[in-house]
Simulated assay, not measured.
Amino acid sequence: MGILLAVTIPLSIRMYVMITAVLVCVVSSGACLSFLLADWAGAGVGAGAAGGLVALITSVLLLAWQTKISNDIAGASVLGNAMASDRDVDRVTLQYPGLRAYFYDNKPCPRRGRERERVLILTGMYADVLEAGLMSTRRIPASESYEDWLSYSRFILFHSPTMLAFVRAHPDWWPNLAKLC
């Protein structure tokens, strides 16, 4: 429970609490030691404690800055992977241009034949792409594109009877898409 709470509290608040706690500990320990030691030795202990506090605060701030940079890189990476997967689906529709209508123009799936097999295979691929895009952009807010993937996924779901039927038939396979149905 404590770990979950620590993760859900914004980083700035966690840093503030941590710095305050360390400040209280360092200052109180330095103050106690300075009362025990006479004159210059006590002042030295207090100054050492203050210097340690400054170093600790600096390292915590640098860690926060580094964490933000890492989150931004992760967001860009997630978005890049999702877009690459989407381009793979686009390549198939370029190779077989008639397939696009099954996802953008409400065209029902053929009842039999090669075209049906292509539509069904591409529907599974497309569902995987949309699910991965939704899941990864939701988990990494730094990608700043969750709402875009949500809109795109809804569009495909409601302009493709085959996609809608697939997701409704297998909600456990694509749980984020199933929530949109």
Rank of each mutant, 00 (worst) to 15 (best):
D90M: 15
D88A: 15
L177C: 10
P161T: 07
S85H: 08
V92P: 15
R91C: 15
F35I: 09
E115G: 06
T162C: 01
S77C: 07
Q95P: 05
D86A: 14
I140M: 05
W65T: 12
R138A: 00
F155C: 14
V167R: 12
P10C: 03
M163V: 10
Y102A: 13
L36E: 08
Y146K: 09
E147H: 11
R112Q: 10
S85K: 09
G46E: 10
P108E: 06
P141Y: 04
G98M: 13
E147S: 11
D39A: 08
A55G: 03
S136N: 11
A47Y: 13
V60N: 10
I3D: 04
K107C: 03
A178E: 09
R111S: 12
P108C: 07
L99D: 12
L150Q: 06
M18Y: 10
F35R: 14
R100Q: 11
G46Q: 00
F158N: 04
E144W: 07
F155V: 02
S59I: 14
L56A: 08
A31L: 09
G44Q: 10
D148A: 11
N106D: 09
A101Q: 02
L130K: 08
I13N: 00
I57F: 08
D72A: 07
L11A: 10
S70W: 02
G113N: 10
E144K: 09
G113Y: 14
C25K: 03
V167C: 10
V119C: 05
E117T: 05
R111C: 04
L33N: 00
E147P: 04
W173E: 00
A169G: 02
G80S: 12
V167D: 00
D88N: 13
Q95H: 06
A43P: 07
L53P: 07
L53M: 15
V92W: 06
T93A: 14
A84H: 15
V92I: 15
R114D: 14
L11T: 10
L122T: 14
K68Y: 01
R118W: 12
P97R: 01
G44N: 09
A82I: 06
V24C: 01
L94T: 07
I3R: 04
V26G: 03
L79G: 05
D128V: 08
G124L: 08
C181E: 03
M15F: 04
A49H: 05
L122C: 04
A132P: 02
N106C: 05
R116P: 11
V45F: 10
A50D: 03
L157I: 02
G133V: 11
A74G: 01
P108R: 01
R112C: 14
V22Q: 06
A84F: 14
N176F: 04
I121L: 15
V54N: 08
V7E: 12
I73V: 07
L130F: 14
V60G: 08
K179R: 03
F158D: 03
L120P: 05
W173T: 01
I73T: 04
W65D: 04
V17F: 13
L62D: 12
G51S: 06
R114P: 15
A55V: 13
L177S: 01
D128C: 00
P171T: 02
F155H: 03
I69N: 06
S136T: 00
Y152M: 04
S145A: 07
A41V: 11
